[in-house]
Write a protein that binds this DNA or RNA. Structure first.
Lengths: 246, 246
DNA sequence: TGAAAAAGTAATGTCAGACATTTAAAGTTT
DNA sequence: AAACTTTAAATGTCTGACATTACTTTTTCA
């Protein structure tokens, strides 16, 4: 009953796949202790070093955690939204930067996903979500803000919007998508004028969410997408014109 | 300039974080070869075994690949949409199953995200997307289909819908969300009557996409979500009533 | 008696060195 | 020039040892 995958892969990869299957299938449950490294090396008939490499692979995916000491060992990890999100962000960020995904494509995906949250957020947002959005809008208006700080505040604004939907699965998915785009967003120079336009739309969106008007919020997001795409086009056009200065 | 994270973590985790940062920041570019294990063990002043554990961690995240032989070594991996998706599915599936995420919450997130694709898909879908949807609808009508096969066809249908948007980033995000829900969907028993209702809505949606009517497609998805949620409530209510039979 | 200190123990973390295997390149022979 | 052989460099694996950690048990002594 060997794994049908990767019959020629490394032993450590095979063992990791074996244990991973046991976790995913539910044969190993959360907080259950795996056999010790010595026992696993007997069971799989490999050295302890090989077992350890397999366990490190699983640890990298947050599938297990290890504890030292007499009662220590490897335990099936209850993966948290936070940990899952961190991994997704790393993966998505690299995916975008390594595969020549255009700003346009990534931006479109991001706003499409955000629009999915808008009606739910308009319906369910709590006051603290509104407050968070207003706070970020205020930050975005500060004169001496760097582009990076502006982007970070932008992410925080949108995060509050998404969290307003009160659906942790949605928040998890969206946070990954939004944060993964940040490196791309950071390539953009935000002039005072373009910041004003973005802030105005943020106010429109926050107002719509506060008024529980999902359609207006969606429309605001569409306008924001249009504005962002136009801004990006201007920046990239200027760059390619001055490419010898880079 | 050590990593500000995890000063007390394992050496192999620290080294993995160090190299990961170099990849994410772009200091190491795609297909670039890392120093050999022996060189890394000198550079970080640890044993080769520790270096190997660090490299296995990175390999588990598809950040590097290794090749044996004279010109072999560890190379920065160009992470593919496919690999990223596979990882995301594993992570999301576990996240949902381990954290007692209700069917309702997951289902809501899934359909919200899909509605985000509907307008784009209606606008841009090619004929082969329509054909794929029609094919799956036909499969779903087969009388002797198991619940698992019905679910699998359902996923394929929705995947064609999402792919119709022609945005790989969107497809990647959505495929993860939809596939991660499959174990939850598989818990449901699809009676002949409920299958008919679902198929009818699939036809409505496919028609709307073919007619390039995004609003109608969104409405169809909303109706499908309502139907699915109602079905799930019926199944779970019946289960809890007969819980002694389990 | 009871609490603090010490010893025991079982697990992971790390190291050193060896050998096996794979792969490409260099060298040799025909 | 083509085919074969050798070499070299890298990863893959094994063995055994020691270090470190943290819980458990025992001992000590007030």
């Amino acid at each position: 009953m060997k794994s049908n995958l990767a019959p020629t892969a490394d032993l450590s990869a095979q063992i990791a796949a074996n244990i991973r299957d046991a976790i995913v299938s539910g044969a190993l449950i959360v907080d259950e202790r795996l056999p010790s490294e010595a026992e696993l090396s007997l069971k799989f008939d490999v050295s302890r070093a090989t077992v350890r490499e397999a366990l490190k692979r699983l640890a990298a995916q947050s599938l297990i955690r290890t504890q030292r000491g007499a009662t220590g060992g490897a335990f099936v990890n209850r993966i948290s939204f936070e940990a899952a999100q961190a991994q997704q962000i790393t993966t998505s960020t690299l995916l975008l930067s390594m595969n020549d995904v255009s700003f346009e494509t990534a931006c479109e995906a991001r706003y499409a996903l955000e629009r999915a949250c808008a009606p739910l957020s308009a319906e369910r947002r709590k006051q603290h979500h509104i407050n968070a959005m207003r706070d970020e809008i205020k930050v975005q208006g500060e004169a001496d803000l760097t582009d990076e700080a502006f982007c970070a505040s932008d992410v925080a604004f949108h995060r509050a919007l998404v969290d307003g939907a009160g659906n942790p699965v949605l928040s998890y998915q969206l946070a990954g998508a939004v944060e993964a785009m940040q490196p791309l967003m950071n390539m953009i120079t935000f002039t005072a004028r373009s910041r004003d336009a973005i802030i105005a739309l943020h106010i429109t969106i926050a107002d719509a969410i506060e008024a529980k008007d999902g359609a207006a919020a969606s429309a605001g997001l569409t306008a924001l997408e249009t504005e962002t795409q136009a801004l990006a086009r201007r920046v990239f056009a200027q760059r390619s014109g001055n490419s010898d200065h880079v």
